[in-house]
Design a protein around this nucleic acid. Sequence first.
DNA 1: GCGACAG
DNA 2: ATCTTGTCGC
Length: 219
Amino acid sequence: MKLHHAHPWDLDPAAAIALQRNLCAHLILTDRIGPVCRVAGVDVGFEAGGVVTRAAVAVLRYPELDVLETVVARQPTTFPYIPGLLSFRELPAVLAALERLREPPDLLLCDGQGVAHPRRLGIASHLGLLVDIPSVGVAKTRLYGNHGDVPDQRGAWVPLWVDDEIIGAVLRTRAGVKPLYVSSGHRIGLETAIAYVMGCCTRYRLPETTRHAHRLASG
DNA sequence: GCGACAG
DNA sequence: ATCTTGTCGC
C-alpha cells in the first residue's frame, strides 16, 4: 500500500489547515467502489498519558463479519488534539498499521468524520484520499452541521445540514441509544455509506469493525 | 467578545 | 482520547 506522493506531517496548525483546503478538492463523493469483501475498522488509542499513539485496524469479511486480519502499530505522538485537525494527530500511526496488512481492504470505516467537517476533510476523507481506498466516517458525536430529531428505530436517519447542503447523516444503528454521525470519506456516496455501516452493525450501537478495532487500540 | 469543539 | 465505581435497566 504505497502513497502516490509524499505527504508532510510536520506541520503547524495553519499549514495543516491550508493543506486541508487543497486536498478536499480531490475528493470523490460518489460511488467509485468495487465488490466489497473486506471491510476494515480503523481506531486509535493512546498510551503513557498520550505520548504514544496506538492505531489498530481490524479487517472483517463482508457481509459475514468474521475477522480476517488485525494489525496494531505504535508511534510517538507528534501533534496535539485540535478540533478539525484530528487526522494530523492520528493518521501517521494509522498509515503504519495499514502498510502491515497482507491484503488491502475494499472499504475503510474510520472513527471520526468524513466530509462532515468545517473544511470537508475529516480523518476518514484524509485517509481515503491518501491510500486511495473508499472510506466512510463513523463518529459518535457531532463536529459540524445541524440536524433534527432521529426516529427511534433501527436504520432511521436524518440529514446533517450546513446551509442548504447535506454533508452527512445522523443514523440510528440501534433503537434506544444515541445515533451515529455518518459521512462520505472518499469514493463513496452517502446512501451507499449508510448501507455499509448498517451492514456492519449487528446488536450494538457501533459497527463490528469499529468494535474490534477499538478493542485492539485500547486493550 | 461569546460559545462550539471528531478523538 | 484518558482518569474511574457503582448502578439502573433489559
